[in-house]
């Protein structure tokens, strides 16, 4: 098992390195002096020179590359130019809402997506299938953040069931916190449920055509047992892959949703950093997202080998 995990880790390394390299290279290829861009139009040449020195921009490209690699490997991400605090600290302060939102949305997406996908597959071509797949088609065709705005209009403005925006931190109670995140999680979660429903349906349809399903039915097993124990269990692999992808999409979607609902998370930190050209923060968040992605996919890989032991051999 340890060897299997190590192998997967090596395979996941590009997901970590490629986005980081891309941002680093863009930073050096982009027209203009990053230090001057960061400080804005009214900075004095002395200030620009000082910042260039601090960021190590005066060194040759290769030296910069090596020192940058060292920084990334030790998580020494430098200091935010505007927040005046280490980047790691700035990210850690804002991780809580983003992580809870993503997990909450994942639970919504997986449960609703898998249930409606299975129902669709079992009633293939019937009214339930057509309605579910029609809704799923609409779901994959709209931006999450717009769906979020519509949920605000309906549930917060008209029905007044949920707060319009804002976040209640976890230390003020789990229910309070989840309450404040319900609309945001529904906005990202339901749109992703559409994606998972489509995958679940097609994967289930493949399995339902197999001989062992007919055998199970023929020997008199109850329909529900056949569907859940025999069919769904064998259809789980593509669904699990979809869930791994979903997690990455949810993290991305969470950014826009944090802006819609005014949630002080990593996404809003990123958007603020982009508008101020706070490069160390941008780079730090890319590293953070890539690391999260690697960890999640490692978990997915381990789950694979638990569902189907042939994988790890």
């Amino acid at each position: 098992m340890a060897r299997f995990i190590l192998q997967r880790l090596v395979l996941l390394l590009p997901s970590l390195l490629v986005p980081l390299f891309l941002v680093f290279i863009l930073l050096h290829l982009a027209p203009g002096d990053p230090a001057a861009v960061m400080l804005g139009a009214d900075a004095s040449p002395d200030q620009v020179a000082a910042l260039r020195e601090r960021l190590g921009l005066n060194e040759p490209f290769l030296i910069q590359l090596v020192s940058w690699l060292k920084q990334m490997a030790t998580f020494n991400l430098g200091e935010s130019i505007f927040l005046r605090m280490p980047v790691t600290q700035a990210i850690l302060q804002r991780v809580e809402p983003t992580l809870i939102l993503t997990l909450y949305a994942l639970v919504i997406a997986v449960s609703i997506g898998m249930v409606s996908g299975v129902i669709s597959a079992v009633n293939r071509g019937g009214p339930a299938d057509q309605v579910a797949m029609g809704i799923a088609m609409l779901g994959v065709s709209m931006p999450e953040f717009w769906f979020g705005l519509m949920l605000i209009l309906l549930f917060a403005v008209e029905l007044r069931l949920f707060p319009v925006a804002g976040y209640i931190p976890l230390d003020r109670g789990l229910w309070q916190c989840l309450w404040s995140l319900t609309l945001p999680a529904l906005s990202v979660g339901l749109v992703q449920a559409a994606f998972i429903a489509r995958i679940t349906r097609s994967s289930m349809l493949d399995v339902l055509g197999e001989d062992f399903i007919r055998t199970a039915r023929a020997k008199g097993l109850a329909g529900r047992v056949v569907i859940v124990r025999h069919a769904l269990k064998n259809a789980l692999m593509p669904i699990l892959t979809a869930i791994g992808i979903t997690f990455a999409v949810l993290m991305g979607g969470a950014i826009a949703i944090e802006m819609v609902f005014n949630i002080p998370g990593v996404g809003r930190l990123l958007i603020n950093a982009v508008s101020r050209r706070d490069y160390p923060v941008i780079q730090g968040i890319v590293l953070f997202m890539a690391l999260t992605f690697v960890v999640v996919n490692l978990i997915v890989d381990v789950l694979y080998s638990l569902i189907d032991p042939r994988v790890s051999r």
Partner: peptide, 20 residues
């Protein structure tokens, strides 16, 4: 693969942040 696995929107935002 490395490029594809990373959340696309995050990467696009980061690129917009660097390129303007």
């Amino acid at each position: 693969d490395g490029l594809m696995s990373f959340p696309g929107l995050v990467l696009a935002i980061a690129m917009a942040g660097v390129l303007g």
